[in-house]
Amino acid sequence: MKKKWRSKAKTQQIIFLLLAITPPFGGYLLFTLYPNLVSVYYSLLAWDGISAPKFVGLDNYVTLFQDKYVWRALLHNLFFMAVVPVSVIFISLLLGYLLSNKGYRGTPFFKVLFFFPNVLSTVVIALLWAFIYDGSFGLLNGLLRLLGVPIGNYYWLGEAKTALAAIVPPYVWGGVGLYVIIFMNAMATIPKSLYESAILEGAGHMTRLFRITIPLIMPIIRVSALFLMLGALKGFEKQMILTNGGPSGSTDVIGLYIFNLAFGAEYHNYGYASAVGMFLFVILVVSKLLMDKYLPDRSVEY
């Protein structure tokens, strides 16, 4: 009787586990694994999405490595990967440290204020910064005029020499708030006795930040840098809304290039777009492996 009861309990446990695992695993197969496998197949075709597909083998990949626009877009991605994560993490660490250790009365208010951009959609953020950069009525030009700078009606997003750099602030502004909260929560786990001992030894705020805070929360910083770098590599929404890759391709990135290849009015080349997508996938995997190898993954223990 006891053996039969154990067998029934084990069967119920297996059924429960299957019911719990099947929905997320099925969603992964349907929405992640299957589209990626189909993209591999599409990358071997010449297909516009309407006419019958034609198998071309590796021709799309040969074209890819000869396509100067792909390499230009990748260079822009690398620029965002280098600038955005460093800017977001530096500002977030500084603000998080000040709010955690200076004891400001309005700390909860500042946390809500900094987090506010994360509540807004990407479209709203992009449109807001498009207004800031507007040549005639933009806030930036208006502020420069108040300071006596003869800027005129300069269109920051309409000039190739400034358009790429002008897209960085929307990324930073939209990302800082979340990481301020993350870093503040990580800093809250650091024993206060460490700071008290450092103060008694005469350590200033910068010394405490770089010798105590940052080493102890390094695993959190590492994960944050990983997400920011990969996001900068595959993201394209803000570029699409602000400039659509212009002027003259000066803000084009790989994600936007793939989108225009597949759905733009000029191309409709799903096969080649899938090949570029596979190229981006390989870059993402290699970037993740390099980050795992070179970014420190262990915190310091005192």
Rank of each mutant, 00 (worst) to 15 (best):
M1I: 11
W5N: 09
A9C: 06
A9N: 05
Q13R: 11
I15G: 02
L19A: 15
T22S: 13
T22V: 12
G26W: 13
F31C: 03
F31T: 07
V40F: 14
V40A: 15
L45Q: 13
A46K: 09
W47A: 02
W47H: 01
S51C: 06
S51I: 02
S51D: 09
G57K: 09
N60T: 08
Y61W: 08
Y61S: 07
W71V: 00
L74G: 05
L75I: 04
N77A: 03
L78R: 01
F80N: 11
S87D: 08
V88A: 14
L93S: 06
L95S: 12
G96R: 06
K102I: 06
R105T: 08
P108I: 06
F114P: 04
F116L: 12
N118H: 10
T122R: 01
I125T: 12
L128Y: 10
Y133K: 06
D134E: 09
F137G: 06
L143G: 08
L144K: 03
L146R: 09
G148W: 07
V149P: 06
P150Y: 06
Y155T: 12
L157D: 09
E159R: 15
K161S: 15
T162R: 11
A166N: 09
V168K: 08
P170R: 02
Y171E: 15
G175A: 15
G177T: 04
L178T: 12
A186M: 07
A186V: 05
M187I: 07
K192C: 04
I199A: 13
G202M: 03
T207R: 11
R208D: 10
R208M: 14
T213A: 13
L216G: 00
L216Y: 04
M218L: 15
P219L: 12
I221V: 15
I221F: 01
R222G: 07
S224I: 02
S224T: 14
L226V: 12
F227E: 05
L230E: 03
A232D: 09
L233F: 02
E237Y: 01
Q239E: 14
L242C: 08
N244K: 14
G245H: 00
G246E: 11
S248W: 00
I254G: 12
F259R: 13
F263S: 11
A265F: 01
E266R: 15
A275Q: 07
F281C: 12
V285R: 04
S287G: 01
K288I: 12
L289M: 12
L290P: 05
K293G: 00
S299Y: 01
S299L: 08
